[in-house]
Amino acid sequence: MARRKKIYEGKAKILYEGPEPGTLVQYFKDEGMVAEAGGPDIVEGRGVLNNRLSEFFMTGLNAIGVPTHFIRRINMREQLIRAVEIIPLAVVVRNFAAGAMTERLGIAEGTALPRPIVEFYYKDEALGDPLVTEEHVIAFGWAGQQDLDDMVALALRVNDFLSGVMMGVGIRLVDFRIEVGRIWEGDFQRLIVADEISPDSCRLWDMRTGERFGKDAGAADPSLLSEAHAEVARRLGVLPTNVTHSTKPTLIN
C-alpha cells in the first residue's frame, strides 16, 4: 500500500491527500485539549468517538441543507471530506454564559443569554486564539463583510440544529465552536462548515443534573473524558445503550 501524503497535522487530527482531486482524508487522533486552559492529553478511544459523532452531526446538517465538508466515513478513525480553504477564525456560538465569557463579563456561569451570541476568535495558538471584532476581521483581510454575514447565518443554523438534537436527549448546548471553509463551484464561492463537530468542540451539560459531557468534562480528571464522550454517543444512538464503555468502544454501523 502506497504511503499517503500528509497535508497537515494538528492537536487532534491529521489531514491526508484524498483519493480524488478536491478531497482529503481526515484522521481523528486520541490527542486533544482538556478544557480551555488545559494542556494536550491522550484519551484512548477519543478519536474513534469523535469521528463517529462528527459524522452524525455533519450528516444531519447536510440532510437539512446546511452545507459541510463531510462526504462519508471511511473507517473507525477516518472520514472523506471536501478540501476547503479554511478561514482563520473560530466561530463560537454561546447560548449560556460559561468559560471565557463569565471571566470577561462577570456573568454568573449558566446564565441563559437573551439570544445566541456569535463570537470570532483569530486562530493563532501562539497568541492564544484571541477574541476579535468584525472590524478586526475586515481590516486585516481575514474575511469580508459578506463572508461575516454568511458565517453568522451558518453558525446560527448549526446552533438551531444542535440545540434541538441535544435537547431531545436531555443535554443543554451551552456553547460550541465551528470552523468555516471556502469552496468554489466554477466562479461561485460559498462557505461551508468544516473541521469537526464533536464533544471536543462543544460545552454540554445534562439538563437535569448539570453533569458535564463536552469539552470541559475532563477539566478536573482527563480520565473521565472518554466516558463523557461515550455518554453523548449513547444518548444519540451512536453507541448501544446497554453497553458499559471501555477503552475500545462498540459502535453501531
Rank of each mutant, 00 (worst) to 15 (best):
A153F: 03
V193F: 06
P116T: 05
F176G: 09
V132A: 09
R73I: 00
D129P: 10
R203S: 08
K248S: 13
D200S: 11
M76W: 08
R82I: 08
I71P: 00
V93D: 10
D160V: 03
L162R: 02
F176E: 09
K6D: 00
M151R: 06
R212V: 12
R52L: 06
H69C: 02
L15K: 01
Q26Y: 06
N253D: 15
G210M: 09
E125T: 05
T133E: 03
V180L: 04
Q145R: 15
I14W: 01
N159H: 13
N62G: 04
D41T: 14
M1P: 13
L80W: 04
E135V: 10
T59L: 07
E44W: 13
T23V: 06
S163P: 04
A63R: 14
L148M: 08
I252G: 12
V232G: 07
L127V: 05
G18Y: 05
Y122F: 15
A35P: 11
D147R: 06
F56V: 12
R46S: 09
K6C: 01
D195F: 01
A194E: 06
E78G: 03
P40E: 14
R52Y: 11
A126E: 14
D147L: 03
E119G: 12
F161W: 08
G186T: 03
N159D: 13
